[in-house]
């Protein structure tokens, strides 16, 4: 109920922003065009989606654009969920939503670390789960599972801010 209202309010404020609507086993989902993404997220925050539950990134390798980004939103008023999908290509910068939801700060850092998607306007875009001089992005589908240089030892001397 609230989703239909939100989507119609959204298409009023940002026309042509919603490319596709879907229902994933009970969770409504909208696919958003890259150029209006930040405005859409700002509008959704204003419409009552006050929690960003998670940021999911996935690599669909042979496809261009290569990555899918998924923002799982939730409204604490009536506990309705909404997923916002965005397609991003390799090297493309996605506007950070950490100014809207604090939880995006670490969520986006994780996506940056494991998938190598860069976020513009992020306050602190560093690796989070792997170490600073780690090479590659583990959750990309072309990341080697084994090999000669696969498991390089951790070297604290090459890390600049090692306290």
């Amino acid at each position: 109920m609230q989703i239909d209202k939100a989507v119609s309010a959204l298409s009023e404020k940002c026309p042509d922003s919603i490319l596709k609507r879907a229902d994933r086993h009970g969770t409504p989902e909208i696919t958003v065009a890259g150029e209006s993404f930040y405005k859409v997220m700002e509008t959704l925050r204003g419409l009552g989606f006050d929690m960003l539950t998670d940021v999911v990134g996935m690599d669909l390798m042979p496809r261009t654009p290569r990555f899918n980004l998924l923002y799982l939103l939730m409204s604490m008023e009536d506990f309705s969920r909404l997923a916002v999908r965005l397609q991003a290509d390799e090297g493309q910068e996605v506007p950070s939503v950490s100014g809207i939801w604090h939880s995006a700060n670490w969520g986006e850092r994780e996506v940056f670390d494991l998938l190598g998607i860069s976020f513009s306007g992020h306050p602190d875009l560093r690796r989070i789960l792997t170490w600073e001089n780690f090479e590659g992005h583990p959750l990309r589908k072309d990341f080697p599972l084994e090999g000669k240089d696969f498991d390089k030892p951790f070297d604290p001397d090459t890390i600049s801010d090692y306290f």
Binding site: T53, D54, V56, G57, M58, D59, L72, H102, S103, N105, W106, G107, E110, L139
Partner: peptide, 14 residues
């Protein structure tokens, strides 16, 4: 194809 785990304490730590 992909399994993303939304850990509650990840966001608590943030």
């Amino acid at each position: 194809y992909r399994l993303k785990i939304r850990a509650p304490t990840f966001y608590l730590a943030s």
